[in-house]
Amino acid sequence: MTRLTALLALALALICGPLHAQEDYPNRPIRLIVPFAAGGSTDIVARIIAAKMSEILKQQVIVDNRGGAGGNLGAAAVAKAAPDGYTVLMGTVATHAINPALYTKMPYDPVKDFAPVSLLVNVPNVVIVHPSLNVKTTEELIALLKANPGKYEYASSGIGTPLHLSGALFESMAGVKMVHVPYKGAGPAMLDVVSGQVKIMFDNLPSAIGHIRKGSVVGLAVTTKDRSPAAPDLPTVSESGLPGYETYSWNAIFAPAGTPMAIIDKLAKAGAAAVADPDVKAKLADISAVSVGSTPDALAAHVKAELAKWGPVVKASGASINE
């Protein structure tokens, strides 16, 4: 082999190698990093979807829980991973919309450090009150709060969490004032609401719906644009006293920036097919998650809109974390 022939062969290998790897993708298991502890709503959603994606991609999609710093630790791990499609993130409203405004030191850029893959599901929040408050609608709650500024407390899962900021947005849009009581998680917060120690809470619908059905709390309205199929009798906040109000949790797959588009497209199609599967949709609906399955471009637009929405809310709330 001449020197020129050898150089041409090397160049061809360098060009064709990555292309073949993309065509052959995936040829080994994929790690789906969930940036929160096992057992939470993001983890549950991830495991339901990962099982179906494993079937579709014919490679195991392994859920890897990397909790800490409100989701920042797990998200940062993916941002720094090789852009080969074998380490991806189950991102949320926290990791890609709220934390960038909440934390003074971010270990990643939510836009520049990630390649959007697919918005998989939306999860409604719900406004709940203790029965002793004697309100049945959002309009009645707003009227009560306006007549008693600063008198009533609302519980959340912690400072700067989506549940805290759902309450802060409610205060801002309704022109009312409540006292925020942060807890170390939604579970302890709900215990105090059920007992009546705190009268109001903005919670994820999956964890609240059992208490609503038992009557231990009163569900006033869901926070999404449309009513939830899991609780069709509950109106939306927007249609019951606060037009334009909308908050919800969401789960989406992100890959590290620089991941080849061919791999992004394969992952996006697999994610969309997974959440469109009738059995998966039923499992997700059972925990009040609404299937979406967007394109990468649609997820990119969604993140941009969410950053613009939550930045001012975080600032107005005064919440800030120095980590």
Rank of each mutant, 00 (worst) to 15 (best):
D192Q: 13
T223P: 07
G215P: 06
E239I: 00
A273L: 13
T223A: 14
I209T: 06
Y245C: 03
T223R: 01
A189H: 08
D192C: 01
V198A: 01
Y248G: 00
P206W: 02
A272C: 02
K266A: 12
S228N: 05
L234F: 07
W250R: 01
I264G: 06
I263N: 00
P235I: 02
V237C: 04
N204T: 07
S249N: 14
A272Q: 13
G210R: 13
A268H: 06
L205Q: 07
S228H: 04
S240L: 05
G244Q: 11
G215I: 02
V198D: 07
P256W: 06
V275P: 02
S216N: 09
S228F: 03
G210F: 09
P232H: 01
A272F: 03
T236E: 00
L267C: 01
N251P: 02
K266M: 11
V222D: 01
K269F: 08
K269W: 00
R213I: 04
R227F: 01
A255H: 04
V237D: 00
L234T: 04
N251A: 15
A262N: 09
L205F: 06
P232K: 09
A257K: 10
L220F: 10
A268N: 08
K269T: 10
L242I: 05
A189S: 12
V193A: 12
K199F: 05
K269E: 12
I264V: 15
A252Q: 03
A252L: 10
E246N: 15
M261A: 12
I263W: 02
Y248A: 06
D277T: 09
A208Y: 00
R227M: 06
H211L: 11
K225H: 12
G215C: 08
P260F: 05
R227D: 03
A255D: 05
A230D: 08
I200P: 08
I209C: 03
V237K: 01
S216T: 15
V222W: 01
K225A: 15
D265E: 15
T224M: 09
G271H: 07
K214R: 15
I200H: 09
G241D: 11
S240M: 06
E239A: 14
T247L: 06
M201S: 14
D277V: 10
